[in-house]
Design a protein around this nucleic acid. Structure first.
Lengths: 109, 109
DNA sequence: TCGATTCATCGCAATATTGCAATGTATTTT
DNA sequence: AAAATACATTGCAATATTGCGATGAATCGA
């Protein structure tokens, strides 16, 4: 029904799914890539770099903020976005645990 | 409009977004976790482990197959699923590149 | 105070996703 | 051949996502 049955999964599974959502759209991938490579924190020039309307970019930023992987500092009239190091590390660890769990030898022949 | 403008992003960005989709739903996370930890390849007992209808599990498996991260071997009347090591490694590398690109020092104060 | 600037939010339309019952397709067993 | 088993697919309903124009909120400069 378009509604995920979150209650039948563990907290960790739901959290990892949420973290993955941060990367599950090319616009958000692009935003995160820009934020990782900029020395200074970019703000709304994200709108210029991406060929998307300002409202659309703002919505992706909102979703990334909900997940917690980015944070915005208000520097009127601008808002400076940057990656949240704690959550970034959390994602790194969560995915790292998955990578570790698999070794090709256990796969079917 | 619910339709992603894939054409304005790079192939790599679209691919990473697709790989992330494999992990962007707790049911798929659970499936992948089961596949990584099982010594032998599990088949449809995924349906029993997850509290989801068989049709729903089948659809998640279909999506994972579309992305390429799992593969199914037909062993009538069963189908044996396992992780595709190449795509698993691809995902590992793609995310690894992202992790590398960020160092906390570049973030806003 | 009046614009101008920057961003968030609202409201809408189009499409995608999630979930399941029912049904279809192979294959094996009896 | 008939029944059983294991999955896939179809069709539907409910909800989520994507995208954008328009509008709102906050702040700064003239």
């Amino acid at each position: 029904m378009g509604v995920t049955k979150t209650e039948i999964f563990t907290t960790d599974q739901n959290r990892l799914a949420d973290l993955a959502k941060a990367f599950a759209h090319p616009a958000r991938v692009a935003i995160l890539q820009i934020l990782t490579t900029r020395k200074t924190c970019v703000c709304g020039d994200l709108v210029e770099e991406l060929s998307l309307a300002q409202a659309t970019v703002s919505q992706h930023l909102k979703e990334l903020k909900r997940i917690g992987i980015i944070q915005g500092e208000i520097d009127p009239p601008r808002v400076c976005y940057c990656i949240n190091p704690e959550v970034w590390a959390e994602a790194q660890t969560a995915f790292g645990d998955l990578w570790k769990a698999f070794s090709p030898a256990t796969c079917c022949p």
